[in-house]
């Protein structure tokens, strides 16, 4: 394969382009937090954190950390002007009740029907942990997944059926990987963008579900928003 995979920041750039001005957004722990770092300053986007923050800002300067102002990943953050604090039940009313416009989540697997598996693998040595993943997946108006296209050993993460335990069924709208952007359509996966130099047959080989291609497939561009 001659095509270069996009870096995580390049995929985050691509996701950020799709987030409309004025959106209320929740970013999952891990790679999705990169989207907050690259989203255009020209857009007014309100970031939500499950532990009771709207208007979450970037990490503080060293020395200005507040141990009572942290994000869902327990990292220190800031509050932007207009931000608000609220308790957990209200925070999950926001998430479960359909008040988040866009959530960007990481995933272990996504199925062609939009099933999401992002909370548990088959490793029985670790205690299970779910956090707010299921509430976000069922509640956000638009669920975007940001993940690598394949596992570290090259196996597809986009499948006909997830083999890992489901977080939620039929919730994912669009998947952004280091190789492609795919929509979950009523009759399966539709490729919107493909990374430069990657033949369609090769993308299909790296995907565990049948693909159709949009009429106007774009070259997956690493450029910022």
């Amino acid at each position: 394969m001659t095509a270069a995979r996009l870096s995580p920041v390049e995929v985050a750039n691509r996701v950020a382009r799709d987030i409309p001005d004025g959106s209320y957004v929740n970013l999952g722990i891990g790679l999705p937090t990169l989207v907050g770092d690259v989203v255009s300053a020209e857009k007014e986007i309100v970031f939500h954190s499950e532990n009771g923050i709207l208007g979450m800002g970037p990490a503080p300067a060293p020395g200005l950390e507040d141990p009572e102002l942290i994000n869902a990943g327990k990292q220190p953050v800031t509050l932007v002007p207009g931000g608000a604090f609220f308790h957990h039940t209200d925070s999950f009313t926001i998430m479960r009740g359909g008040h988040i416009d866009v959530t960007v989540l990481g995933a272990f697997q996504v199925s062609e029907d939009g099933d999401l598996a992002n909370w548990a693998t088959d490793d029985a040595r670790m205690p299970p942990a779910v956090g707010g993943a299921m509430d976000l997946a069922v509640g956000a108006k638009r669920v975007l997944v940001l993940m690598t296209h394949t596992t570290v050993d090259g196996r597809p993460k986009i499948l006909r059926r997830c083999t890992y335990p489901l977080t939620a069924a039929r919730v994912v709208h669009r998947v952004y990987t280091d190789l492609a952007v795919l929509d979950v359509g009523p009759s399966g996966l539709v490729v919107r963008d493909v990374v430069a130099g990657l033949p369609r047959a090769e993308l299909q080989r790296l995907t565990g579900a049948p693909l159709t291609f949009a009429d106007d497939v774009a070259t997956l561009s690493p450029a910022g928003p």
Binding site: G131, A133, M134
Partner: peptide, 11 residues
Amino acid sequence: LELVPQGTLSE
């Protein structure tokens, strides 16, 4: 361990 989704725990 009883594992409960976070919003369900609160609710």
